[in-house]
């Protein structure tokens, strides 16, 4: 019966006869949702989407766990997806209501953090690498040595984003280990390198797009989308993929267990899997999405951008950070605390 209803609703929506005024509460990263996407969705379905922002996975998790939040959809990062599932905060998606699920690109259709994509629909994905002003430093930038053994030209001019999991994982991979390693030899090497390099960093801060553009910084550990925006403003900025290993991330939309607008949520999830709509998401925040065929609708400058299209030689160096637990997490926090002292 429910399926029939939603199928009817879908039909109504697709023929533009939508009359039922619905609402949807989306809880998403700040500055991540294209207003044009929401306008288009409202025009097609009559459903008004309200976006509320968060700025960290942990805040979002704590908030939903506390209850009484009023949200329907949330967009956690890959390494948090299993936590949401394990805690029972989200529900398994009903594939029957997601006609466009086949649009998910093959490489994203079955992922380690959500086998079979039972719980999550791709939103955007990207990488954490190093952006460097090539006028200041002409050497190899496809290595974490740029920020862990800072070359003389970049001393006092390079920034590191204050993302504990990304930074400790990159240092661990640079030291020869894997993320969430419990190998104390590797961790010691990573910690010592971080602490030795810290005096050479100008800061541990966000805002790389600005500060790379206006030459406040000559380099930064940074996300690819932000690096691309910096390059557009300042052509000297290039983005490197550390060959020792660099983190990949993907944020995916999930349906909350206590969602009140379930049908509307399904419509929205299905809507963002339409290639044209997925391209709208990417055009706004400048990260790739996981929908096959969306490339055709992407802005011209993103189709060939070296920040978005990972060069073949570095493709297998990208790693999705696993969810560290127990001892491994303690190591990460302890190293981070020591680094910040």
């Amino acid at each position: 019966m429910k399926n029939l209803l939603s199928a009817t609703a879908l039909l109504l929506a697709s023929t533009g006869l939508a009359s039922a005024e619905g609402v949807l509460q989306l809880y998403n990263w700040g500055n991540y949702t294209n207003p044009e996407l929401l306008a288009k969705f409202e025009k097609e379905t009559g459903i008004k989407v309200t976006v509320t922002d968060y700025d960290s996975n942990d805040t979002a998790l704590a908030k939903i766990e506390a209850g009484g939040h009023g949200f329907d959809l949330v967009v956690p990062s890959a390494n948090y997806v299993p936590i949401w599932v394990e805690k029972g905060l989200v529900v398994e998606l009903d594939t029957a209501k997601l006609a466009n699920k086949g649009n998910i690109a093959p490489e994203w259709a079955d992922v380690a953090w959500d086998p079979g994509r039972k719980f999550s629909i791709p939103w955007q994905w990207g990488s954490t690498g190093v952006a460097v002003n090539t006028k200041v430093y002409g050497g190899d930038i496809n290595t974490s040595s740029v920020w862990l053994e800072v070359p003389a030209e970049l001393k006092g001019k390079i920034n590191v984003v204050p993302e504990m999991n990304d930074i400790v994982a990159m240092a661990t991979m640079w030291a020869g280990g894997a993320p969430c390693s419990e190998d104390t030899e590797v961790l010691k090497k990573a910690r010592d390198a971080l602490i030795a390099a810290k005096p050479d960093w100008i800061s541990m801060d966000y805002g790389a797009t600005e500060k790379l553009s206006n030459n406040d910084w000559a380099g930064s550990v940074n996300w690819n989308g932000s690096s691309m925006r910096a390059r557009v403003a300042n052509p000297d900025v290039a983005y490197g993929y550390p060959k020792e290993g660099y983190p990949l991330f993907m944020d995916s939309a999930m349906l909350l267990k206590d969602a009140q607008n379930v049908e509307e949520a399904y419509k929205f999830l299905d809507f963002i899997m339409v290639p044209e709509n997925a391209a709208l998401i990417s055009a706004f925040a400048r990260y790739a999405n996981g929908i096959a065929g969306s490339e055709a609708f992407m802005p011209e400058d993103m189709k060939t951008a070296p920040e978005v299209v990972i060069p073949a030689e570095f493709k297998d160096k990208g790693v999705f950070l696993p969810t560290c637990t127990g001892k491994a997490q303690e190591y990460v926090t302890a190293i981070w605390t020591e680094l910040q002292k």
């Binding site: 990263w29 700040g30 500055n31 991540y32 922002d53 968060y54 700025d55 966000y206 805002g207 797009t209 600005e210 989308g225 932000s226 925006r229 925040a285």
Partner: peptide, 10 residues
């Protein structure tokens, strides 16, 4: 709203 923007670009 601003806090949400801070990590990306303002």
């Amino acid at each position: 709203y601003m806090l949400g923007q801070m990590r990306r670009a303002i």
